[in-house]
């Protein structure tokens, strides 16, 4: 990879009054690819996403390098960040029930993403938003534009969220468990819409998830995180050949459809995982 979009070396992040850092010595680079970050709850995967967007003002961050398309994210001023956020990098949040403002029309919220960064007329932004709603395969975008978030389904809400976050053609999109709040039946549909758009537009995607199968199918590369550290990095197609005992434990703990039902194996955590050098 000649020119990575995102280059992070040795990132450590600590929340105020926390005994241990939430993220510890994390390094990775991202090009125009789809990178999965997988780990259990509390492993720090969401924190990494929010740290990249600098959404954690109270946390202390240290890194050898943390750059996004040539911008030093560690030392960028808030003003610089406002120009990046929503324009060149954006984030799809988990549950549209909570991530959309309940008292504003869905369409206006999408258009706002555009109007924040492009000075344009209201009607032009509305036209852009409607076109984008169409791009996420919403059939009647003019009608949906005027709906309030409580009037749309979860799958529709998440497509609105995707439209909002891709409208400005960002170079990097972080999807923080984009489908875990959705019904299984619409999950695949929403994911393939996101996947198509990311491929078409050449966006670098970070998919944060705890769903190994989802990551296997929709990502090129996978980082496995445990206790704030990256314990293993592999190509998605090699996931079954993972070497680290934690990854293997996660894979073994997946229930399978069919076959005899046995109690799922429980992870056997080894304290040495924490001291091991990453990568």
């Amino acid at each position: 990879m000649a020119d990575p979009i995102l280059d992070i070396q040795n990132l450590t992040l600590r929340y105020p009054n926390a005994p241990t850092p939430a993220v510890c010595g994390v390094s990775f680079t991202l090009g125009q690819e789809r990178l999965g970050i997988v780990g259990e709850s509390g492993s720090g995967k969401s924190t990494v996403g929010r740290a990249i967007m600098r959404l954690l003002p109270d946390a202390t961050m240290q890194a050898d390098r943390m750059s996004f398309a040539g911008v030093d994210l560690l030392n960028a001023s808030e003003k610089q960040m406002l120009k990046l956020r929503g324009a060149r990098m954006s984030m799809i949040l988990q549950d549209p029930k909570y991530s959309l403002n309940p008292i504003q029309r869905c369409g206006d919220q999408v258009a706002e993403a555009y109007r924040t960064h492009v000075s344009t007329t209201k009607s032009d932004a509305k036209a852009k938003a409607i076109a984008m709603l169409e791009a996420v395969q919403i059939r009647d975008p003019e009608r949906v534009y005027d709906l309030y978030p409580h009037e749309v389904s979860g799958g529709m809400g998440q497509r609105i969220m995707i439209a909002m976050m891709l409208l400005t053609d960002p170079e990097l999109v972080i999807a923080d468990e984009p489908t875990s709040a959705l019904d299984v039946t619409v999950r695949l549909q929403v994911l393939s819409i996101l996947d198509d758009l990311v491929k078409q537009r050449g966006i670098g995607l970070i998919m944060i998830s705890h769903d190994l199968n989802l990551v296997r199918n929709f990502c090129d590369r996978v980082l496995i995180m445990y206790a704030g550290r990256i314990v293993e990095t592999l190509d998605a197609k090699d996931l079954d050949h993972a070497r680290h005992p934690y990854t293997r434990g996660l894979l073994a703990a997946q229930p399978r459809i069919g076959g005899p039902r046995r109690p799922l194996p429980v992870l056997d955590r080894d304290p040495s995982w924490l001291s091991e050098a990453t990568l």
Partner: peptide
């Protein structure tokens, strides 16, 4: 958070 992600101050 969504609003902040959009780049609003």
């Amino acid at each position: 958070t969504t609003a902040r992600v959009k780049g609003l101050s």
